[in-house]
């Protein structure tokens, strides 16, 4: 059905152009035009008719391209929502439920520690895998209550480059990161070369964009969760909310 409609539409265009051109030619013949005036009238008729048909055709083509793009965006967003909810958050919340189900006497046992380690692994893999871009890396930096206070690498998932930075209180970068955690703020850096945190040293870092979210409940601070990408655009402002939820859930798991 759709195919025959397409055929009719495709045939209609040349027929319309031919009919309109013939009309111009007939008009010229009826008016006894000849020589240059006839040629000019017929050529102008053909050109104007082609223009009259061509402009809507171009608009139709553009509309089709936009519709295809919109369909692709809708598909990507729908798939991403399903991936985050169904494949990342559901197993994680199930796991947190298991942690919460442990009787109090188990709280300091090996079992809870193991489940919390699993929660960290799930959060790191989800943060690196569900945001859309390839070759992302997610890292957890745990807050260590020593003097000076530090945020030390404590697990990562994604690209095979282990995080090496330790954020130490008293340094520009350390105070900045600990301040984000204390204020429960998140940070999205679209391009490290355009705008980077205070005390930032590019060093051997290959990544160009990153997100930082706190891993904390209202009363306790566990650390920060970061996700980074190699290319500008690998992460967007729209990714921050998902990472923030993962950070909050990790805090719930670690605090149980």
């Amino acid at each position: 059905m759709g195919g025959s409609k397409e055929l009719v539409r495709a045939a209609a265009r040349p027929v319309a152009i031919s009919a309109a051109t013939v009309a111009w030619v007939l008009g010229a013949v009826v008016n006894d035009l000849s020589g240059w005036s006839f040629t000019l009238t017929a050529a102008a008729g053909a050109a104007l008719t082609a223009l009259a048909v061509g402009i809507p055709l171009r608009a139709e083509h553009n509309a089709r391209v936009r519709a295809r793009t919109a369909e692709q965006i809708a598909e990507d967003e729908s798939a991403r929502a399903q991936l985050v909810l169904n494949d990342a958050l559901e197993p994680l919340t199930y796991l947190i439920g298991r942690i919460a189900d442990r009787p109090p006497r188990w709280s300091f046992g090996r079992d809870v520690g193991e489940l919390q380690g699993q929660a960290k692994a799930v959060v790191l893999s989800a943060a690196a895998e569900v945001l859309g871009a390839d070759r992302l890396r997610a890292c957890f930096f745990a807050r260590v209550e020593e003097k000076p206070v530090r945020l030390v690498p404590s697990g990562f998932h994604g690209r095979a480059e282990e995080p090496r930075t330790t954020f130490v209180q008293g340094t520009d970068l350390g105070d900045f990161a600990l301040g984000l955690l204390a204020r429960r703020e998140d940070l999205f850096c679209a391009d490290t070369e355009a705008a980077s945190p205070p005390g930032w040293d590019p060093g051997p870092h290959k990544y160009r964009t990153f997100i930082v979210v706190p891993v904390a409940t209202e009363t306790r601070q566990f650390g920060i969760l970061t996700v980074d990408g190699l290319q500008i655009g690998d992460l967007t402002e729209g990714d921050v909310a998902a990472v923030r939820v993962l950070g909050r859930l990790l805090a719930v798991a670690l605090g149980a």
């Binding site: 729908s78 399903q82 991936l83 692994a121 799930v122």
Partner: peptide
């Protein structure tokens, strides 16, 4: 429990499969 075990044992494959299925379903629904 089974999903969690699969996720923990091989997260890269788990999410690659999940991504493919999510796109198939999204395409179908759309």
């Amino acid at each position: 429990r089974a999903r969690l075990a699969r996720l923990l044992s091989d997260p890269a494959t788990y999410f690659a499969d999940a991504r493919r299925q999510a796109h198939e379903q999204a395409k179908r629904l759309l």
